[in-house]
């Protein structure tokens, strides 16, 4: 279980995140929506201990992320390009992540066969370093690497942005399959309401750092969200 207790982040008087309490159960597919600057990336960054919250603490399976490094063994993430090592080839990068998560080369190879569709022959066996791939392909590499090694908590920030329609559809399928697993918690953020509602079973709406809505997905969810964002 992931617990945010009284988390806030203030940059010189401006509060960008203020979450009193948020609990995410294991196995949940958690969607985060909100406009630019709503605090989505900030919230994820506090979970990954990439920024220091002004107040409060984050517990990832009872581990305080700031005081212990043990959460790193079962958590993985892809937030942006800074999660890629540009001078490696995609294969080398996957093997490196595999090594960090105790996956042998063979296991990584087997794992990657599931993603042949997604890669569309543009990533594996090519003669390119990650830095020379297109932005979309770089993103695919980052997301797939985040899934290596059976992580129990997967954090993806804006995974659908900048991907072509075919890839978006395939990626949604992958995320849905993942969240079917009992013990895997998937956290996804997006601007796109439809994408998020499609892959998650619980949706939290952030605005200016505050939680405005926290809803279980029903057939009406998408309409609800849309009406929220269209209101004056």
């Amino acid at each position: 279980m992931i617990k945010f207790n009284n988390i806030s982040k203030t940059y010189s008087k401006q509060t960008v995140l203020d979450v009193e309490s948020l609990e995410i159960q294991p196995g949940q597919a958690f969607g985060l929506v909100g406009n630019n600057g709503a605090g989505k990336t900030t919230l994820f960054s506090t979970l990954l201990d990439l920024i220091k919250p002004s107040t409060g603490e984050v517990l990832n399976n009872d581990i305080n992320v700031r005081t212990s490094e043990d959460w790193k063994s079962f958590t993985s993430a892809f937030l942006d390009e800074s999660f890629l090592i540009g001078y490696l080839m995609p294969e080398e990068y996957f093997y490196f992540v595999g090594e960090l998560r105790n996956f042998s080369k063979k296991q990584v190879d087997d794992f990657l066969t599931d993603f042949e569709d997604l890669f569309n022959n543009e990533i594996l066996g090519g003669k390119k370093y990650i830095r020379d791939l297109s932005k979309g392909n770089q993103k695919k590499v980052g997301i797939v690497a985040a899934l290596i090694g059976d992580p129990k908590v997967i954090v993806l920030d804006e995974p659908f942005a900048n991907l072509d329609p075919t890839t978006q559809i395939r990626l949604k399928k992958i995320i849905k399959n993942l969240s079917k697993k009992e013990d895997v918690t998937v956290l996804v953020s997006s601007h796109d309401l439809q994408d998020v509602t499609e892959v998650s079973d619980r949706i939290v709406l952030l605005e200016k750092g505050l939680i405005i809505k926290d809803i279980k997905k029903t057939t009406k969810t998408l309409k609800d969200l849309e009406s929220y964002f269209t209101k004056e």
Binding site: L48, K72, A77, L79, S82, L100
Partner: peptide
């Protein structure tokens, strides 16, 4: 890729 290194195992 420092944030990657900081999140990995």
């Amino acid at each position: 890729h420092y944030s990657f290194m900081m999140c990995q195992n």
